[in-house]
Design a protein around this nucleic acid. Sequence first.
RNA 1: GGGCGGAUAGCUCAGCCGGUCAGAGCGCCUCGCUUACACCGAGGAGGUCGCGGGUUCGAUCCCUGCUCCGCCCACCA
Length: 877
Amino acid sequence: MDKTFRPQSVELKWRQRWEELGIGRADPDSPRRKFVIALPPPNITGALHMGHACGFSIQDALSRYHRMLGDEVEWCPGTDHAAIATQNVIERELAAEGTTKEQLGREQFKARVDAWYEEYGGRIYEQMRRLGFTCDWSRSRFTLDPDYVRSIRTVFKALYDEGLIYRGPRIVNWCPHDRSAISDEEIEWQEHHDTLYYLRYPVEGGDYIVVATVRPETMLGDTGVAVAPGDARWAHLVGRHAVIPLVSREVPIVEDAAVHAEFGTGALKVTPGHDPTDYEIGRRHALPVVTVIAPDGTMDTPELPQFHGLPVEQARPLVADALRQIGALVKTEEYVHDVGHCDRCGHVLEPLVSEQWWVRMASLAAPGITAAETDEVSFHPTRYTDVYLSWMRNIRDWCISRQIWLGHSIPVSTCGNGHQFAWIEPPTTCPQCGDTQLTHDPDVLDTWFSSSLWPFAIFGWPAHTRDYEAFYPTNVLVTARDIIFLWVARMIMTGIKFTDRLPFTDVLITSTIQATDGSRMSKSKGTAIDPLVMIERYGADAVRAWAAAVGTGGQDVRFDEDRIASYQRFANKLWNVTTGVLLARLGRGADSIPVLDAPDPDELEPEDRWMLAELASVVAESDAGFAAFRFHDTMERLYDTTWHSYCDWYAEMIKPRLHESAPPASRHAAAWTAVTVLDTIVRLLHPFMPFVTEECAQVLPDPAPTLQGRAWPRVDPLWNNAATTAAHAGVSSVLELVQHIRALRQQSGLPASARDAVRVLVHGSAAGLSNADAARLVAGLVPASVAETLDGARSVSVVAGPFHAEVSLAAPVQDDGHTHRQLDQLDAQIARLQAQLGNPRFVERARADVVEGARRKLDEVTRQSQTLRALLQRERR
RNA sequence: GGGCGGAUAGCUCAGCCGGUCAGAGCGCCUCGCUUACACCGAGGAGGUCGCGGGUUCGAUCCCUGCUCCGCCCACCA
């Protein structure tokens, strides 16, 4: 029989079972408490990577946990059309095929997009299924669904009618590659090493002024020169006019506070058409806007044909040369600064003035600020509250129009009589005058506009559907920190505005998964990892457990495949102790263990209570971990308890008692405890590792069709009553003693075959553990034979807690260094404690329990040291 | 220019409301194929918890300065 757990052999079975049982499907009419998560819809631009796997695994763990708590859980999945991102991906594909979307035409392009959505949407859902996620697939949403579109238009129209959406010419972040505006949040800043040019502009009346710029080509659009208010160097020129070379335009010299006197020459060329700062200065001084760059990023200067039509980067040196020839270029310097790029296509952005749609944000942001300030919505880790708040408090109007092909149309039309109106259903006539000559706005909406409605739009809003009533608002949002502004903040604002409620109460920001070298995981660099590859290699449970272990620390983590591998071994360990130890010994040849009645507590041995106490603590810590969204703590504790407490210690301790020949009462107590603990552990682990735990649960007595139907464990009073706690302390000391004896044995160099070569005389007892029981445990764990006396044989000694042991080794003892080392450690500890307690300030000022603890520790350590020393003395004789 | 996070064993990380916390996994060394597991077991080596000050009876854990990383925000062209 194969003794290795093969995840691949059971995953499909359980995925099908969960689906058949309808685990993920929620009933809006259920009387149970609701627990709802809206899955952050992944962009359909490709497949999911390990970052998604991590965040989504945490959501599934939450969902499974809440089902076990008895909640009605709705985890609503979906995908995002990601207009600008998808269009980019497809355009790149077309480019590779040597064509363009323009050559293809709108119709065929759309077909291409639909095919893409079909393929990648399916791929994403497949990845999610393979990870064993229990989303409510019956409620899957896509941001292009008709109902969803209706929600978007409803929101748009409401904001429009209220005057919170407006259209106007302003300077925007223009991407010449995408030929579209983008919002401030979609700018990616990169460091550029450029040249700073000093340009000399003649001033009427024979004077001149020198300005510094990294973009000399924009001087063709200059409509002013600005200096800092009160700057003595230029004060005499303020109010006069400079003449822009090459275009011979007379422009005013003004004072403006935006100018920094210490930079460059303290004088700034003002190009309102192509720089945001200049645009504002221009508005303050009524300077005209002159556009010299076209939407495609080329120079638009028909009157200067030598530059016209050239890309700006090419025009820049040419303009500089032209200025140099006429003596207007004074000097150049190297200059390092940040330049904005489009975060989707990477091209350098070109600030341009154009007509765009905007959302006025201030009034929308105000209640969202209050909500965070009053903890109605909490971020985890909490520091992200400040990140959110500082953005919200400095919020600027949001540019929501995009000039791309893909996306939701802006639902605004204008009639022949100039009436402009927003609509929900596509109109045929003007609501004001009935005119049928309607022009529809050609732009589409920023994808994030539609995303911002996600938590309520997915449930049918604005219709007051049963789903909406039952499932909104959601509870927890689990997402990555890079979209706190783009998405989280905006959901909070629209949620409050349109539903009068916060869309969620907790925001869990998951760790960012980096490539192994600490860089960002990226498909193009080949550092992105497909979860499916990891699943095939280690199993879905291992990937999920890894996600829990690294995902909630709040720290960025470098991807470490070994870590996933360790959880595969963990799954194997769990499965092995279940089938190889418990089933093999208790199953009577059947494929599951028969039901065991709870024993009389008096029949429990100290080690049983020790294990139950360990269990009580891991249950409590699991609950604490879930409550605080600290899954990494929970995962670590479960790993440690399962592997070390249960498998390494407890299973080994009780093996003799599980033997057929053991006394029935003792055997029953051990079997019951072992099964009870395992059954509990399996339920605690289930949210993280659903497959292997289901598999184990099937072997345990009285299996349910799925652990999702079982209750989340609670601590039984028996697990942490006084007797159990006392036994736990005693057994812990014995385990320590065992480790000392093992070390002695190992260092003695005795051959492994010499089983009976070790004889031990155990002394001492504890409140929860008799000397006889201590000796029994030692004998089982070392292994060694327990002696009544050592009749003068040479021995070495070790001590732990109230116990100590004399160990006689058959071979001449070559090395009792362990004892001496133990003694050294004890003495060092005694010295430290004596010094501490000898310090009057410590005794005075430290908390009483700390002092008391130190005293007690000193007593114990001193006693141990004396015992050991006495035994050593005797050995010497 | 502001702000945030990090600097703990060879590697990846946990611990940090100050006093058995110096930890885990992987790697490494030595034993061991003992009827759950070699995807294993037992034992072991390995860290002045970035550096300098300070607070305190006591600091990896608090304050401060510094040095390196990473990220976010910012209209000095």
